[in-house]
Nucleic acid binder design. Structure first.
Lengths: 226, 226
DNA sequence: GATCGTATGATTGTCAACAATCCGCGGGTT
DNA sequence: AACCCGCGGATTGTTGACAATCATACGATC
């Protein structure tokens, strides 16, 4: 009787709603700065305000929602400094993930080639949305490969914010080929077990992203600007 | 009329309760694995179950509480693999913070000497609790210095988990002098603007901590064990 | 005697009503 | 015209009650 099944009913209502709210923010149907009316949302989800409020508290903790007591909950709007901060945080998480993959078992890094191929084909048929999807999938899979619960949880939040950036700034940013190439180089560096190279490539990849999103600025320079 | 005051009433009830719950977990009065009875806790906080449940959802999102639907909420108990994971995550966050401090403005790193001194004096009068306090304060201040909202938020959660480790394993771990020395070296490396050295020292500092907590094992080796 | 089924108590999940706060509008005053 | 005051509608915060689920103990059956 040793069949290793996973327990049923493992997700609470608040968890489900939280996931959907995250998705709504990702797609932009909940725009940055928008207020989340409890009555309206509760109606849409077909639940009462109780479970909805519990779910929203999760996103507050994630930093995806901002709470103004007695006034309401709002989708955070990302200031320019947040763009730097976001990508700096991603650099930290993803570099750590890459190192961990290298030190434990670099072999399954090959899985990343599937996301890489998907991104290539999306680029060929010039489908910006699909390109972004594959792009982010690459990064999220990388962190998932590390097997770290904590890195994965942090990454999930950062992914949502990344998409907020992309849709807010309306930049599915060009230079697709360059990004694909960079991804490939990262995979190879990890497969080769070269920590220094992998982290350097990741850092540069992020630098490029920030430059594309907020031209003329750079990572790790948030103090000099407002 | 340009006095820059910060808005009043900026914290919701859920936020306050969440903070107290976090504190209760750090002190160990909410032990790992313990169930959080809603009725009992609500009584202690003198609120109804609604706001309490909202607060608890925040900790679930942080990974400090584990939710078993229709059964209850429990304080997570840290498995051996979590110790590795925790310190790997801390390495990621703190290294990134150090780098960011170096690249923006290394000067205020001097503030860390106060925590360093506090740790030294606590060591002299052989007060293990005060040593741990000063130790963690050092690390948290380092991340705060980075000025990164995201790194700071992640760090707060990791600090709670770190304390859970310490109290659970009953190791305020010895070698106090060694740790103090390491802290000093980290400060100097940052002040000197040496990224490589600072991150290397931080990583080694974490390695040592893991070794002290779970002897015979090492960071980044979670896959080889169960 | 072991196992299954059932009843009971306790706990969690959900809801709708009530209280408190905030926002906008109109009236009045200077 | 600008400002202050206060009212009404709307939204958020909180509560206690109800429904659903789970854990435990007891008794029946094989």
């Amino acid at each position: 009787m040793e069949l290793d099944v996973e327990p049923v009913a493992r997700e609470s209502t608040a968890g489900i709603i939280a996931r959907q709210l995250r998705a709504a923010i990702t797609t932009g149907s909940l725009a940055p700065g928008a207020q989340l009316g409890e009555a309206e949302l509760a109606n849409q989800f077909q639940v009462s305000r109780g479970p909805l409020r519990e779910a929203m508290q999760r996103l507050v903790q994630e930093g995806l929602l901002r709470s103004e007591p007695h006034r309401g909950l709002f989708v955070v709007d990302l200031e320019p400094e947040d763009v730097y901060d976001l990508y700096a945080a991603r650099t930290a998480i993803e570099s750590a993930a890459a190192i961990r993959v290298i030190r434990t078992d670099p072999r399954p890094v090959g899985e990343l080639w599937t996301a890489h191929e998907r991104m290539t084909s999306a680029a060929d048929r010039e489908d910006p949305a699909a390109v972004s999807d594959a792009d982010l999938e690459f990064h999220e899979r990388l962190v998932a490969l590390s097997g770290s619960k904590r890195l994965a949880r942090m990454m999930r939040t950062l992914m949502v914010e990344t998409r907020m950036c992309l849709t807010a700034l309306q930049r599915t940013y060009a230079d697709v080929r360059e990004r694909v190439t960079e991804h490939g180089a990262i995979i190879e560096a990890i497969a080769a077990g070269d920590e220094r190279l992998a982290t350097a490539l990741l850092e540069r990849h992020m630098e490029d992203a920030v430059r594309r999103l907020a031209p003329g600025t750079s990572l790790f320079a948030s103090r000099s600007e407002g």
